[in-house]
Nucleic acid binder design. Structure first.
Lengths: 197, 197
DNA sequence: TAAAAGTCTTAAACTAGTTCATTTTTTTTC
DNA sequence: GAAAAAAAATGAACTAGTTTAAGACTTTTA
C-alpha cells in the first residue's frame, strides 16, 4: 500500500515503537485530520480548549505562555516529525494557558480527543505506543529541567545550538531569548560574544 | 482478600487508573521486592545501573545530581505514595547520573527491569496504567519547568510551600535551597523575609 | 519600491542572587 | 548529656542578567 507523504511520515514515526497491520494503519489514518497554518497564525491560544494533539509534517511552530507582565516564555519549538499540543488541556478539558503560533507556513496532522479515546478501544497497541512516547518525553523533560537550572544563559545557548543546530537558524534571536529565558538584549550580547570566541 | 499495609497502599495507587482481578493483583504483587533504607543511606548513586523503579510506602528521599563543581541540584523529594527512580537508566541500561538518598528511614517497593517487562506481557492492562502515569507526570513536569523559569526564587519558594506544605517541614533549608536552585545563604534570607511579611 | 513595523546592537545604571567569612543555633553521636 | 558535626543567620563585596533608551539594520506590507 502506498500512502501520501504526510501519512507515510506519521506511520514511520509510529513504527519506531509498534507494528501495525495494513488494516490498523488505515483505521488509524482515518482518525486523523489535515491541518494547515500560515506563518504568524495561531494553532492555539490561551483560554482555548485543546481540541487536538498535533504531529508536524512540515514547518515550525513555537509553544509559549505569557507571564503576568505579558513577557513570553517559549517552552518548545516544534518542527518536522515532532508531536505537540497541550496535553493537560487535551486530557482534562480545561482551558489551556498556551499559545502555539506558526513561525513558518506549516502542515500538521491532528487527532481529536474523541478519536484519541476511540484509538485505544479499537487498537489497544496504541496504549503501548503512547506509554513509550510519554516515557521518552518524560526522560528528556527531566534531563532538560535538571540540566538547565545550574547553567548560565551562555552555556544554555551553547547546548541548544549543539543539540538543535538546524532549529537555531530557523528562529529569530528574540524567540531564542524567550526560550533560553533571558532578555533579547542579553541574548544579543551572548551571541556576539560566542561568535568572537 | 486482605493485604499487608504496603501491598494495600500500592494496589490503591494502581486502582486510580486500572481495575485488576484478584488473580492479577496477586501476580503483580509477586513481582515486587520489599526495600528498606536508613536515613542518610543511598538507594542509588551516580554511576550505578538503575535496577528498580520504586514506590514509596513510608519515609522521604531526595533525588539529586551534582554539577561540575560538586554542587547538588535536587530534582524531587519523594514521599509516601510517590513513584521514583531513574527511568532513563532503568530503560536504557546506561549508568545513572542521579543520587537518591533517604532523608528519613524509608520503606519502598521496587520492581526490577526484568519484572517490569514481564508485567506488560502478563498483564497488558499495565501498558495503560503506565501510559496514564507517565502522561500525568509529563504534564506536571511541563508545568513545573514552564512555571519555574520566569519566577524569582522568592516566588518559587512561596509556590513550593503552598503546593507541598507537608514536605517543607520535613526537609532542611539547605535541601530546599538545592531544590529551588539557590544558595543556602540566599534561602535563609528569603525565608526570614517571607516570615516577616 | 517606499513606508512602516519589527529585529538587532550597544551602553549605562540597576537588581537578584552568589561568594566568602564569621557567629549562633540545632542535631547527631558516642 | 557533652562533644562534635551539621545547619542556619548575617553581612560585605561581587557578578550575571535586567531595564531603559536610542540608533542601525531587515523584513513585511501596501
Amino acid at each position: 500500500m502506498i500512502y501520501k507523504e504526510s501519512h507515510a511520515l506519521i506511520l514511520n514515526n509510529i513504527a519506531r515503537f509498534i507494528d501495525l497491520t495494513e488494516l490498523e494503519k488505515q483505521k488509524y489514518l482515518s482518525l486523523l485530520t489535515d491541518i494547515k497554518v500560515k506563518k504568524k497564525a495561531f494553532l492555539m491560544q490561551a483560554g482555548d480548549f485543546a481540541k487536538y494533539e498535533y504531529f508536524i509534517i512540515k514547518g515550525c511552530l513555537k509553544v509559549y505562555t505569557l507571564d503576568e507582565d505579558g513577557a513570553p516564555y517559549i517552552s518548545m519549538f516544534a518542527v518536522e516529525d515532532y508531536w505537540t499540543g497541550d496535553m493537560a488541556s487535551f486530557m482534562t478539558k480545561e482551558p489551556t494557558p498556551y499559545f502555539i503560533k506558526a513561525t513558518e507556513h506549516s502542515e500538521l496532522l491532528g487527532i481529536s480527543r474523541a478519536n484519541y479515546d476511540l484509538l485505544f478501544q479499537e487498537i489497544p497497541k496504541f496504549e503501548r505506543f503512547y506509554r513509550i512516547l510519554y516515557q521518552r518525553s518524560l526522560v528528556s523533560y527531566i534531563r532538560r529541567s535538571n540540566h538547565g537550572i545550574s547553567l548560565t544563559a551562555e552555556q544554555r545557548y551553547i547546548e541548544f545550538k549543539k543539540k538543535y543546530p538546524k532549529i537555531v537558524n530557523r528562529i529569530t534571536q528574540k524567540d531564542l531569548a524567550a526560550y533560553i529565558g533571558i532578555t533579547p538584549e542579553f541574548m544579543s550580547k551572548i551571541i556576539s560574544k560566542v561568535n568572537r570566541m
